[in-house]
């Protein structure tokens, strides 16, 4: 009887949309290469409601955002499965992106974190360049998680 170690996790932080295309492609390629389990990870927040004048019913807004994120993640899951990734999961969380991602990395014991570089989201719940590097170093120290930052060209 031979014992096989479980496949490693690749955590792919993604929002969906055109800008995520390269990040998702890279994550799928790596999952196939490493025979890893792929987790699409999405964090929802309603920070933009600070700019609105009316209608700040967070419960309803979060439900709508959750449904939207769930739909986008399901599409990515389909895409990864069609490409041949055997195990694909999706995780949707609410709140601060750094905290949630750190938590998810620890929970899944991910070996690799694939993150995109959003190009047009000043002030919102995304990583800024300086934060991204700090966060990568921090994760590497905590759990030996490798962080891959995917640019516009997919690298």
């Amino acid at each position: 009887m031979t014992s096989t170690s479980p496949s490693p996790y690749i955590l792919c932080l993604v929002r969906g949309g055109k800008e995520s295309k390269n990040t998702v492609t890279k994550a799928i390629d790596l999952a196939l290469e490493m025979d890893a389990r792929l987790v699409f990870f999405h964090v929802i927040d309603a920070e933009f409601l600070n700019q609105s004048m009316m209608g700040t019913r967070l419960k309803v807004v979060y439900q709508a955002l959750y449904d939207m994120a769930d739909f986008a993640m399901e599409i990515l899951k389909d895409r990864a499965e069609r490409r041949g990734v055997k195990e694909v999961e999706t995780i949707i969380r609410e709140g601060n992106i750094v905290k949630q991602l750190r938590q998810a990395a620890i929970e899944t014991q991910a070996k690799l974190l694939v993150i995109g570089r959003p190009i047009r989201s000043p002030g919102s719940n995304v990583f800024h360049d300086s934060e991204l590097l700090n966060f990568a170093n921090e994760l590497a120290e905590i759990g030996e998680v490798e962080v891959l930052i995917v640019g516009d060209e997919g690298e």
Partner: peptide, 19 residues
């Protein structure tokens, strides 16, 4: 309008920013 900002906020979270 506030509705513009809210629409842009949600759209951005889906990966479709409105600049």
């Amino acid at each position: 309008a506030s509705a513009n900002l809210v629409t842009a906020g949600i759209s951005e979270r889906a990966g479709y920013p409105i600049s």
